[in-house]
Amino acid sequence: MHNTNELSDEECGHLARILLASRRVTLRHHFFSWVHGPVQSLIPHEILLCGVADESGYLLHERFTACRYFKDDHFHRVIHPGNGLINQMAQEWQVMRVPRLIPALQNDAGGWHARLTDLELKNIAFHGMSWINGQIKGYASFSRVRMPFDGRLALYLDILLPHLIVTLTRVLANEARTSVDSKRPAGLITVREVEVLTWVRDGKTNDEIAAILGLSMLTVKNHLRHAMKKLVVRTRGQAVAKSIALGFLRAQGSRIEPEKMLEQ
Rank of each mutant, 00 (worst) to 15 (best):
L19E: 13
A21S: 14
G111L: 10
R17P: 01
C67Q: 07
I47R: 02
I102M: 12
T26M: 12
Q40S: 03
F31T: 05
L49I: 15
S56E: 07
A109D: 12
I47Y: 04
S41A: 15
R97F: 02
I18V: 15
G13A: 09
A109L: 11
P38L: 04
N87Y: 04
Q94H: 12
W34G: 00
Y58L: 14
N83W: 14
R77P: 02
G110W: 07
E120W: 04
V35W: 02
H30G: 02
V78W: 00
H30L: 06
S8P: 01
P103W: 06
S41Y: 09
V25D: 08
I18N: 12
R115K: 10
Q106W: 06
H61K: 00
R63G: 01
H2P: 15
R100H: 13
D118P: 00
P103L: 08
L15K: 06
P38S: 03
T117K: 10
L116F: 12
R115M: 10
W93V: 07
I18G: 06
R77M: 09
M89K: 12
L42N: 01
N87G: 11
N3A: 05
H74E: 00
E92W: 09
Q106E: 13
E11R: 04
L7Y: 08
E62I: 07
P44E: 13
H113F: 14
I102Y: 15
P44N: 06
V95T: 13
R17I: 10
D72P: 00
L19H: 08
H36C: 01
T117E: 10
F75S: 01
P99D: 05
E62A: 14
V78G: 00
T4Q: 11
R63K: 09
G111P: 05
P81I: 03
N3G: 03
L49R: 08
E6M: 09
Y69H: 12
D54E: 08
I79A: 01
L105S: 12
G84R: 01
R17C: 06
P44I: 11
E10M: 06
H45R: 09
R97N: 14
G82K: 14
C50G: 05
F64P: 03
G51S: 08
A114D: 13
S33Q: 13
L59A: 02
E6H: 07
W34V: 01
R115I: 03
I79S: 00
L116C: 06
A104F: 07
E55D: 06
R68T: 13
P38I: 05
R63Q: 05
L20D: 07
L116A: 07
D118G: 07
L48H: 02
H36K: 01
H80P: 03
G111Q: 08
P38N: 04
E46L: 07
A16I: 14
S22E: 03
P44C: 08
D108R: 00
G37T: 10
A66M: 09
R63L: 03
R97Y: 10
W34S: 04
K71P: 00
Q40R: 11
H2C: 06
T26H: 06
L59R: 02
S33N: 14
H61D: 04
F70P: 00
T65P: 02
